[in-house]
Design a protein around this nucleic acid. Structure first.
Lengths: 296, 296
DNA sequence: ATTGACCGATACCGCGGGGGTATGGGTACG
DNA sequence: CGTACCCATACCCCCGCGGTATCGGTCAAT
């Protein structure tokens, strides 16, 4: 024979009432089946749980120990449904969030605090991935939400998270390094440091369109902004970078605004698969659909 | 409807196999009842635990949470019988031990280490009580075992724990305070400090018999040895005290051996009620019956 | 596109277990 | 000594769980 929950509940009731009749009444059954439950329990455990004194019952030492175990089991069982339901509707759980190295500087912190406000009991796991890798990971259900650059493939849902324009990064000894106010792209006479078309397709395309492919040098290494700034600093050319990166303040690199005519904004989007099985994501997505602002 | 252990076991099996057929095989049942168990579980929780993809199944986020809970419940239930059985045959539990203030100095430490050797997983609770109070507490099942002086009433079981002779305690300015070797009781010309017949009946009776009631002063206060030594030190008389108390080394008190003719040993016994319901005590009692020596 | 294999869901049947009523037996109290 | 109280036992009934047979849907191979 094996233990059953009814036996456990019956035992706890009798142990607390020390009276079969009262315990049976509490359990909404009659006394004989309760007697059988306890007897079965004692037979299964090969242990006497109660001393029958003829006038009421008393817990044995073994019964006292088993009572603690039974209470623990029943208490666990008590909270399990509620915890499961909370996980089912996304109140608890884990969000696997990916971000691009470039995007992380500007908005990752704000994005995480927004997520924390909307789903307080949900924990976050972070991964750094370039945008194409994020879309693949989203499709494979390896991540739940990504901070990506456009273009966003079909089959994904997204909200605009951040928009900023590009500024010009020039070496400190460059002619354009001195002076205030906006500059025009036509005043830049040397070549540019370019973005990798694989790792940063979006910025690559935008810059190529702004500058023209003839003076746009695609560097394989320069998919990471710190690498690009190092190349600028080394005097290999200028670069167009998102404004938020200015906060990095690399020594030997100066930043200039662009003429309004040349200014071009780049965007970052939170992106997810609408048929993800993660309830925490569903809950966040629903919240974002209602109020797409980050400071919601 | 309510959760059942079979549902939990079924769910864990399916969650681990991710295959109803394999899970059913592991549970030694067929697949249809297993399907019903999971369905009942999902209905009870109002939560989908598996995604049926048509080709096998996959845990939902909620299912993952519930799996942890279910595993915890089953693990607790797994160990409960063994823990209960150990408590039933006295391998675990609590021994409530009482001791006399006088007896504690000589043997309490040794007694506790002996108990620890014989019943390693049993914890001890200690109480200081005079011997008559110990017998009452033993009868009322308030303590399990006591370290008492004779006589031991009927209905209790006991073993000799310690035996020692009495020595003479004299004030530092007493004529007998100087010199080596044994002294005879007849050489003591002044009165003695006596034991309380209520609190220390055994020592009272022995001393009264050794000295004679005419020179034996019963002090109400002197049921505790430190009190007696303080009275001796104050020069109010001599006293007969167990040899082990010499280790206390009170300033202003000297100790002299007694002549062999006058020497008288006093004993301390471990005493318990043979029909105690505490299995830990039963186990210790059984061990003491087989080998009554303390260093067993 | 069609077929076959696989897998979970459903329908129906039979039996064992758990609860109900009635009653026995043992202990404590007046 | 009788009575009241309380747990144990005997017997009956029915719900629930497991078994067999089968359906329906999905994926892979040809």
């Amino acid at each position: 024979m094996d233990l059953s929950l009814q036996q456990l509940r019956g035992f706890v009731a009798v142990a607390e009432e020390l009276h079969y009749g009262k315990a049976a009444q509490r359990l909404n059954i009659t006394q004989p089946p309760l007697t059988r439950q306890i007897q079965g329990l004692e037979r299964t455990l090969s242990v006497r749980l109660f001393d029958r004194t003829g006038r009421g019952v008393r817990l044995t030492a073994a019964g006292d120990v088993f009572l603690e175990h039974a209470r623990r089991v029943l208490a666990l069982l008590e909270v399990a449904p509620e915890a499961t339901r909370r996980a089912a509707d996304g109140q608890t759980g884990t969000l696997r969030i990916a971000f691009t190295a470039i995007g992380a500087y500007a908005v990752l912190a704000d994005f995480l605090t927004m997520v924390g406000k909307r789903t307080p009991a949900v924990t976050s796991e972070l991964t750094e991935l370039v945008s194409p890798a994020q879309f693949e990971a989203l499709a494979n259900l390896e991540i739940d939400i990504g901070l990506v650059r456009p273009p966003i493939p079909d089959g994904f849902e997204s909200v605009l998270v951040h928009s900023e324009d590009l500024v010009l990064a020039v070496p400190a000894d460059h002619p354009l390094a001195v002076g205030e106010g906006p500059v025009a792209l036509v005043d830049v006479t040397d070549d540019y440091i370019g973005y990798s078309p694989e790792g940063s397709q979006y910025l690559h395309d935008i810059c190529a369109a702004m500058i023209g492919m003839d003076r746009y040098a695609v560097s394989q290494l320069a998919s990471q902004v710190p690498t690009m700034l190092a190349l600028v600093r080394a005097g290999l050319g200028c670069a167009l970078i998102p404004r938020s990166i200015m906060a990095m303040g690399v020594e030997g690199v100066r930043y200039r605004e662009l003429d309004a005519a040349d200014a071009h904004s780049v965007t970052l989007h939170a992106c997810w698969s609408p048929d993800s099985p993660n309830p925490a994501l569903q809950r966040l997505a629903e919240s974002l659909r209602e109020n797409p602002h980050l400071d919601g």
